[in-house]
């Protein structure tokens, strides 16, 4: 599956109390928090847009996609710019933990059939702590 090929490096981020990992090749860059311009009349899943060196980048409310409440902003917040289709989108991570690779990556037993499993069909097992591997293509 897509997860297992090429680079096996992941950027591990914290969302709420959970840890998630994004394949490093999907990530364009990680920037500090900056003001997000809301767009009226859009679903709550869209936080707004930012200006990234002259490009208008939409910022996605990843929390709502993953069905978790948004935690208050802290200094640890980062915007992660990921490649999405032909362009880019940003997500706000509560914190960026590390760049790492995992020795043990397992597919979830229920795979994509499970209605919650849509978001993460693999998990990394780090000494009993499960880290969801997510891919923007699957989430958005």
């Amino acid at each position: 599956m897509a997860m297992q090929q090429t680079s096996n490096q992941y950027v591990e981020i914290g969302l709420g109390n959970d840890r998630f990992a994004l394949p490093i090749q999907e990530i364009h860059e990680i920037i500090k928090m900056q003001p997000i311009i809301e767009i009226p009349n859009t679903p709550t899943s869209l936080l707004g847009v930012i200006n990234l060196r002259g490009n208008v980048i939409p910022i996605v409310n990843i929390h709502s996609y993953l069905g978790m409440p948004k935690v208050p902003d802290t200094k640890m917040n980062r915007i992660i710019i990921v490649n999405y289709e032909q362009s880019m989108v940003g997500i706000v991570a509560d914190q960026v933990i590390q760049v790492t690779s995992y020795s043990q990556i397992e597919p979830l037993p229920y795979g994509e059939q499970h209605h919650d499993g849509r978001h993460a069909n693999h998990v990394a097992n780090v000494q009993g702590v499960l880290i969801n591997i997510i891919s923007m293509d699957q989430i958005l």
Binding site: T42, P58, V60, E85, S87
Partner: peptide, 19 residues
């Protein structure tokens, strides 16, 4: 004029953005 991109798509009363 900068498009809001395919992810955002059509937004009522907003046709785009600018820096």
């Amino acid at each position: 004029m900068k498009s809001l991109g395919t992810y955002v798509g059509e937004v009522p009363y907003i046709s785009g953005s600018t820096i």
